[in-house]
Computed example of a mutant assay.
Amino acid sequence: MRSEDRQKITDILKLYLVYEEPMLKIPPEEFIPAVIRGGVTCIQLRSKELNGAQNYRSALSLRSMLEGTGVPLIINDRADIALCSGADGVHVGAKDIPPSAVRGLNSDYIIGYSCNTPEDVQTALSAGVDYIGTGPAFPTDTKKDLRELRGPSGIGELIASCPVPAIAIGGITAANCGELCGLNLKGVAVSSSICASEDPERAAAELREMVEKL
C-alpha cells in the first residue's frame, strides 16, 4: 500500500461508528450530522436483523446522508449490498466471504477484516486488507456471536507486528478508552456508546477526544 493511501486509511479509522439504527434515540437524518460534527470519521452499516431489501434501502439512505461529508460508508458482511448501493467498502470476518473475493469485486474498496487470533491476522494480511478490527476489547452485549475476549493486553499482542492499520472494537466507551493507549491502534470502533446515546454528538466528541490520545 502506498504511503499516501495508508495515511488516508489511518485518518478515517480514528472514530469508526458501527451504525445500528434500532438503537437510535433520534431520527437518522438528525443523528448522522450530529455524530459527524462530534468527530466520527467512518460509518459501518451493521444490520444483521434486516433482510436484503431492508439492508439495501438503509445503505442507500446512509450513502445519501454522507454525500459530501468525506465520511466513507462501509457495509458489514454484505459485499452484494455494498456493490449495489455504491458504498465505499466492506468489512468481513471469518464466517463471511473471503476478503480476497471482496477485493475482486472492486479494487478500490476499503476492506476490513475482524481479527481475534493470530491466524485471523495472517488471513487478513494474505488478502491485502486495508485495516483490521481487533477485539473484543471489553465485555459487550451488542454483538451476539461474540468471540473470545482479547482485552487491551491481548489486542496489543495481536497487533504488535501487524503492518496494516488496526482498530479496537467491543465494549469501548469514553470511560475505558484510555486503557487502549500505547497499543499502536489507529482508532476505535464503537456502536452503542454513540448509537444509544441521548446526545450522540457529545458522545462522539468525548470519544474522539480520547482517541486523539491513543
Rank of each mutant, 00 (worst) to 15 (best):
D96G: 01
S197K: 04
L15D: 01
D145M: 09
A34S: 15
D80C: 12
S47L: 06
A166P: 03
Y16D: 02
D96I: 00
K144E: 12
I194N: 03
P200R: 10
V92F: 04
L149I: 12
C195G: 10
T123E: 13
S3N: 09
A168H: 02
E49C: 01
S153H: 14
S193F: 04
E198D: 14
T140F: 06
A82K: 07
G151S: 09
G93P: 07
Q122E: 15
P200C: 13
A101D: 07
R202C: 10
G38S: 09
N76V: 03
L60G: 06
C115S: 13
P72K: 11
A175C: 02
E20S: 10
P165M: 10
V102A: 12
D130E: 08
M23L: 15
R57E: 11
Y113T: 09
P27I: 10
D145T: 08
D145E: 15
V35I: 14
G52W: 12
I167C: 02
M210V: 11
I132F: 10
D96N: 03
N55P: 00
C177N: 09
E206A: 13
R57Y: 09
E157S: 10
C195K: 11
S64A: 15
E212I: 02
I74V: 13
A127C: 06
M210G: 01
T142A: 15
E119D: 15
V90T: 03
E148K: 14
L146Y: 08
P200G: 10
L149E: 10
G89T: 05
I155M: 12
L180M: 06
I36C: 04
S161F: 08
S107K: 15
L62S: 12
V40N: 00
A174H: 06
L24I: 09
I111P: 05
S161N: 14
Q54G: 11
K186S: 14
I155Y: 08
E29M: 08
K213I: 01
E209N: 10
R202G: 04
D80A: 13
R103N: 11
E212W: 02
I172Q: 00
T117Q: 12
E67P: 00
L24A: 14
T134I: 12
S107P: 02
I26L: 11
L15V: 05
I194K: 03
D77I: 01
E30A: 14
G86R: 07
C177E: 10
R103Q: 11
G112D: 07
P99N: 07
L24N: 13
R6K: 15
S100L: 11
E198H: 11
D120L: 05
P163S: 03
R6S: 08
E212C: 08
G70W: 01
K213H: 09
G187A: 06
C181A: 12
I167F: 03
P152C: 12
I9E: 01
L50M: 14
G38W: 02
P136A: 15
M1C: 06
R63K: 15
L15H: 05
N106W: 06
V129H: 05
D11H: 11
G70N: 07
C84N: 09
L15F: 05
Y19V: 00
D80P: 09
V18G: 06
A166C: 14
A205I: 02
A204K: 04
L66C: 04
S197Q: 02
V71N: 00
E49P: 00
P33H: 04
S153L: 13
K186T: 06
R2L: 07
T10Y: 02
V90P: 01
